[in-house]
Design a protein around this nucleic acid. Structure first.
Length: 346
DNA sequence: TTCAATGATTGGTT
DNA sequence: AACCAATCATTGAA
């Protein structure tokens, strides 16, 4: 490749004796005044710089050495440094102080709050406690879930820290590498310390954007874990037998109007150790499911009817007859299972 | 593994 | 706001 330029300069030596390779118009003034000689020197050195990429490696090395030893080199180098300094400064002015990224701050805050980026033990338990508080503190048997949650959180945490460390290390390695390279090059081409500094900050910015992605995906993972842990549907537990019996008892003894008042709901909730909302859910589900398939619930209905009857008998035998359990079955609402079952049997 | 039972959620209605 | 109806997602027995 580039055979053409090579051919053009192929006859030029490295030696400083002549001025080979110079364009015709530059050679014209040779042998003139003292100023002409200096001009010639500069032209020579510039020409060599221009053609340095056209040389083979050995040739270039030799040329580099020659350039380094040239008496004009320091002066030229300084001029180039000055020019560069000016342009670099003008570039720097535009992008000086960047404000801290609000999104990054948000991510950092969240990771800290979730105990991913904070201190090892304290953060984790704090997050678990927060999760427990948010879950409504329903049952006492969620300690197993807590440990599960904590285990997964610490897994995320570990991955996060490993990756973060990896990126940091890579960043440092790359930075040192680039700095060494620039320092090495600064011996042959004008590189100011400021320029190196700027390069380092560019590298850091690049790596911190990668870190931000890591933080973002970590946040997402934590959110998913949290939602899984907190989503009641996923950790649904059937009510215990006693609670179900209390609810069923109320339902079948108020079959004509199975709509407990707010007070009744509260009392049922207390008795069953569940929330009022859960009582409402239960009655909503029960009503619709009973209505949809009364036949299926006949047996259950009869059982509870019999039980309330026994209770009533016991209560009356103990004294007051008036306050037997209210069974306003015959009114509106759903058909009475007893009568219906009688009808069915016949 | 399948499937009925069941607690919770969602969207619509009154 | 309470309720209904349909649906989702899990549980637990077969």
């Amino acid at each position: 490749m580039d055979e053409q330029p090579r051919l053009m300069h192929s006859h030029t030596g490295v030696g400083m004796a002549g001025h080979p390779g110079l364009p015709q118009h530059m050679q014209e003034g040779t042998g003139g005044t003292d100023g002409d000689g200096r001009k010639q020197d500069i032209g020579d050195i510039l020409q060599q710089i221009m053609t340095i990429t056209d040389q083979s490696l050995d040739e270039a090395q030799a040329r580099k050495h020659a350039l380094n030893c040239h008496r004009m080199k320091p002066a030229l180098f300084n001029v180039l440094c000055e020019i560069k300094e000016k342009t670099v400064l003008s570039i720097r002015g535009a992008q000086e102080e960047e404000p801290p990224d609000p999104q990054l701050m948000r991510l950092d805050n969240m990771l800290l709050a979730e105990g991913v980026s904070g201190p090892e033990k304290g953060g984790g338990s704090a997050a678990a406690a927060a999760a427990a508080a948010a879950s409504g503190g329903a049952g006492a048997d969620n300690s197993a879930e807590h440990s599960d949650y904590r285990a997964k959180l610490s897994q995320i945490r570990q991955i996060y820290h490993t990756e973060l460390e990896k990126y940091e290390q890579a960043c440092n390695e790359f930075t040192t590498h680039v700095m060494n390279l620039l320092r090495e090059q600064s011996r042959t081409r004008p590189i100011s310390p400021k320029e190196i500094e700027r390069m380092v900050s560019i590298i850091h910015r690049k790596f911190s954007s990668i870190q931000m992605q890591l933080k973002q995906s970590t946040c997402e993972a934590v959110m998913i874990l949290r939602s899984r842990f907190l989503d009641a549907r996923r950790k649904r537990r059937n009510f215990n037998k006693q609670a179900t019996e209390i609810l069923n008892e109320y339902f079948y003894s108020h079959l004509s109007n199975p709509y407990p008042s707010e007070e009744a709901k509260e009392e049922l909730a207390k008795k069953c150790a569940i929330t009022v909302a859960q009582v409402s859910n239960w009655f909503g589900n029960k009503r619709i499911r009973y209505k949809k398939n009364i036949g299926k619930f006949q047996e259950e209905a009869n059982m509870y009817a019999a039980r309330t009857a026994v209770n009533a008998a016991n209560a009356s035998s103990h004294g007051s007859q008036a306050n037997s359990p209210s069974t306003p079955n015959s009114a509106g609402g759903y058909p009475s299972p007893c009568y219906q079952s009688d009808r069915r049997i016949q």
